[in-house]
Structures are given as structure tokens and as C-alpha cells.
Design a protein around this nucleic acid. Structure first.
Lengths: 221, 221
DNA sequence: GGTTTTTTTATGGGAAACCGTAAATGATCA
DNA sequence: TGATCATTTACGGTTTCCCATAAAAAAACC
């Protein structure tokens, strides 16, 4: 069960909304830090005591300003915190959404969860904290799928060309011609259809529209 | 011809990349400011001299920090700068991409160009500066289309709901049911089809996939 | 060189999307 | 209330997409 939470986040607005979300979940025992250094210090102060934190919610990007700091970003903060209190659960809350970053955090730094700053992030935070309370890790659905299925799925020129053409308004039946113009093989309509099906299955999306949305969200196209 | 440039941008990384881009264009005479106040002061100092700037590249959002400032954002900066040196060309370089914001900047503040911080923004900056050198204004293609066509197009809840459902993988034929669940009217399939056609025409896109891509790019969904 | 295996392309039937038109519903106003 | 107008929904024909299967081509192997 998550009872005591530390929020490391330089944006005041994000800070407020996270606090509000915690309150909605009935969690009232939380502190926040605007600088990584402060967050680390707060963990250090409490780690070996009965006032230790159960969860740290942290941003990845911290805006540098006049104050001299030794830790400038969330990744370094997580690394440092892990040394001090290894059992502290960590939930990353960031606008960054590149698959490689998340996979690194998940595989190398063993974070317990990742929420993207996006449309319904507050709802996601709630779900994530519930999952964490049940000792389950939480990742955004598409990333979860990537890790569970083929991990580190990379888009080939063929695949990215198809999705780009779709996003540019090319009708599926016209894609073979365009691929030939681009000198990309294969170019047959069946191959395009097959690849689209494959992509949809791997990425767990239902339609071409959703595929395009996913690729846009993840900066693939 | 653009020779002397002022960069107003609080992110150091963005600052560096803009400078690099300028150097690629053969522009070496540039200064930068991390605060709006500083940028305005630099314009004031040079406006009436032979050292005046040809172009100011500015962000819209500036992170507040310990320093007390009188101008906190790009819009106020642009307004103030226009008073001091009306002929200074202004290129906005921002992550914000809401149509209404850009149209306001373009129509009310008469900015010369707008670049979104995005995938290929450096290339766009180059193109924009070339255009500006030829006394042409530069806007992202989709926004240009909006302004040339119907201007000031705002997405209603109905429209945005449809596009969101598409982007979430809902099949078109299932959208009516979902709209009813969301208590959004109209919900008939014909109405959905009609609206999609209308959106595609207004936004100058050919397919649903392209529509989703456009809305993702513009932060509409 | 010929056989197997894989990849690519072609084909056809059925589902979904597209598009025009007509019917139905709802709003407005005398 | 009833007539008019606008909006929403229903329907049918056509195109595109989807999906399974088979043919063709290319690659790998002996």
C-alpha cells in the first residue's frame, strides 16, 4: 500500500495536479521538491527511519536556473536515490515518450512505472498507483506491449515509408506505385497489407488511424 | 537579407541548436538572451543605431525562476519589441501549436514566421529564414492552409470526439454507439461521415489517416 | 543445376468506408 | 397549431479495404 509520497517536479502546475490526484486517492502524506538535490536530500533524511517514503514521483527534465545543483535531471536522481533507498518505488512522470528512453528506465533503472504527461495523465497516475500498491509495475499500454512482445521493435524503411505515406493521405491502393517511385522493395499491395497487419498486431492497434496516431505520439514518423 | 539575429530562448539546448542552424546558413552575427527582459533591452539598445537586429527568434514560454522579471512570456515580449523597433522581423519558435495561438500571432501581432519545436524544426528554420529574406512570411503548411482557406476554424466537442475515437482505433461504423455512450449529439453514422468529409475538406487532407496525423501534429487531440 | 524454403505478388469474395439522395426529426416563427 | 427551414438519420450503390488462398519469383541449400 502506498502511503507516503515524494514528488520531484520543477513545474509548479504539474506539481499541483499530482498532489490533487494523490488526494483523490486518499493519500495525504506527501512532500514535494522543486529540485533534484532537495528530493535526494529528503530521501536521505528519511530512508533509514520509520518516516521513509513508499513512492517517489519524478519528472525527467528539470529546468536549470540560477541555483547551482549537483543533480540536473530525473535519471541521475533515480540512480542516486536507488543507492540510498533501494526499496523506494519510483514512478516517472514525464513528457518524454521515446520508446528507447522508457525501455532504458524500465530495464536498467528498474522503475516501477512510467506516466506520460498527456491528455488523461491524471487518470493514468491513479491506475499506476493502484497497480504499484499491488506490486505490479505500470507502463503505458503500447510500451507494455512492445516489451512483452518483440522488444526493441525498430521500424524499417519499408515500414516507416508505409506509415508516412498513410499519414500523408495516400490511399492504400496507391501505395505500391509510390513505393516504386521511392525505389523501396517490396512494393506489392499484398506486401503492404501484410506489413500493416503485422504492425497493427505488434503495436496492438486496431485500425490504420490508430496506427498513425501511435506513430505520431512516439515520434516514429 | 537577414544578417543580424537576436535569439530569445530560455532553454539552453534550443538556444544552441538555433545558433548552429544560423551558422549553417552563414549567419554569424547573432546574440542570445535567456530572459525576455534582456532581449527587449538588447533591442532597445540597438534599435536606432546601425547595429540594429534584422530578426528576432523567440520562444513563447519562458520558465519563471528566482529572477524577478517584468516580461514573462514571448507574446508580451513581441508586443513590447514592436513598439521599439517596428521593422524588426519576428520568428516565433515554440512547442505550442494551437491554431488559435498561431492565428492570433499572425493576425494581431503580425509575426513574420512561426516554427514549431518538432522533429525537423531545424530544416524549417532554414526555410523560414530564407523566406523571410525574400520578404515572405513563413507559417507551417497546415496553418497556412487554414488561413488561406476558412480561417479561425475551431474544433467542436463533436468533431474532436470523432477524431479521438478514430485515433483510438474505433471503427467508423462503431462510432455512433460510442458517441451515444458519451452523450454527444448528433450520433448518426451519416452525421459522422458528413463531418469527417467537412473536416477533410477544410483541413485539406485526403484520408482519415492524414486527418489523424494532422490533428496529432497540431495538438488538437 | 535442381530442389526446398522463403518472400513477394496476384486474385477473389466479403466487410467497411464513401457518397449521393431521400426520409425523418427538430427548431423557428407566424 | 401548422408551415417552413435546418439538421439529423436512413438507405442503396460504388469504391476501397480487408483477408485468405494460391501462384510466381527470389533466395538458400544440397
Amino acid at each position: 500500500m502506498i502511503k507516503k509520497v515524494l514528488i520531484a517536479e520543477d513545474h509548479e502546475s504539474a506539481n499541483i495536479s499530482v498532489q490533487k490526484t494523490l488526494e483523490d486517492l486518499g493519500i495525504t502524506d506527501f512532500q514535494h521538491a522543486y529540485y533534484c538535490d532537495d528530493a535526494l536530500e529528503m530521501v536521505k533524511q528519511t530512508a533509514k527511519t520509520d518516516r521513509s517514503y513508499d513512492l517517489m514521483i519524478t519528472d525527467l527534465h528539470f529546468e536549470p536556473d540560477d541555483r547551482k545543483v549537483s543533480i540536473t535531471n530525473g535519471i541521475d536522481l533515480i540512480t542516486a536515490v536507488r543507492e540510498v533507498q533501494p526499496d523506494l518505488k519510483i514512478l516517472v512522470f514525464s513528457a518524454d515518450f521515446t520508446t528507447s528512453t522508457i525501455q532504458m528506465l524500465y530495464n536498467k533503472l528498474d522503475i516501477e512505472g512510467y506516466i506520460r504527461k498527456a491528455r488523461h495523465d491524471a487518470q493514468e497516475i491513479k491506475q499506476a498507483i493502484k497497480d504499484l500498491g499491488m506490486h505490479r509495475r505500470y507502463l503505458p499500454r503500447p510500451i507494455m506491449d512492445l516489451i512483452n512482445g518483440k522488444n526493441g521493435y525498430e521500424f524499417s524503411t519499408f515500414e516507416s515509408a508505409i506509415v508516412k505515406l498513410l499519414a500523408a493521405g495516400t490511399m492504400q491502393k496507391d501505395i505500391p506505385t509510390r513505393l516504386q517511385e521511392l525505389q523501396i522493395k517490396p512494393s506489392g499491395l499484398s506486401s503492404v497489407e501484410k506489413k500493416l497487419n503485422q504492425l497493427k498486431q505488434v503495436l496492438n492497434v486496431a485500425t490504420n488511424e490508430q496506427l498513425v496516431a501511435f506513430c505520431k505520439d512516439n515520434g516514429i514518423i
